[in-house]
């Protein structure tokens, strides 16, 4: 096991435990205040696109907002299928197949 990766994984575990344990151990009957609840619900909705979209549109740090970027088409397929309430893993698999096919045929 690589030392840097070990540090990363242990740090991830500690950071994650810090999100799980304190409020469970507090055993409080008081619900979180509504604006705080809303913020906690919105965080993943903001973090995941902040991660995904630059991976798709800025591969290697260079803008690639062109039809020749296979990942752009894969993204549209994934979003269309999830919007149509398709199974999550099915949507992902379809996106992967589209990207692989476009790369294979060099379209």
């Amino acid at each position: 096991m690589r030392a840097g990766v070990l540090v990363t994984i242990v740090g991830m575990a500690a950071a994650t435990y810090l999100t799980r344990a304190p409020l469970l151990l507090a055993l409080s009957d008081r619900a979180l205040r509504p604006p705080l609840r809303l913020w906690l619900r919105l965080i993943p909705l903001a973090v995941l696109p902040a991660l995904a979209i630059p991976l798709v549109l800025l591969p290697d740090g260079r803008p690639a907002l062109t039809p020749s970027n296979p990942q752009l088409w894969g993204t549209l397929v994934v979003l269309a299928l999830t919007a149509a309430r398709a199974n999550l893993l099915l949507s992902v698999a379809a996106g992967v197949v589209v990207v692989a096919a476009l790369r294979h045929f060099g379209l």
């Binding site: 995904a52 894969g74 993204t75 994934v78 949507s91 992902v92 992967v96």
Partner: peptide, 9 residues
């Protein structure tokens, strides 16, 4: 990215 986008959608 596909998993991330599907999770959000």
């Amino acid at each position: 990215p596909a998993v991330f986008l599907a999770l959000v959608a």
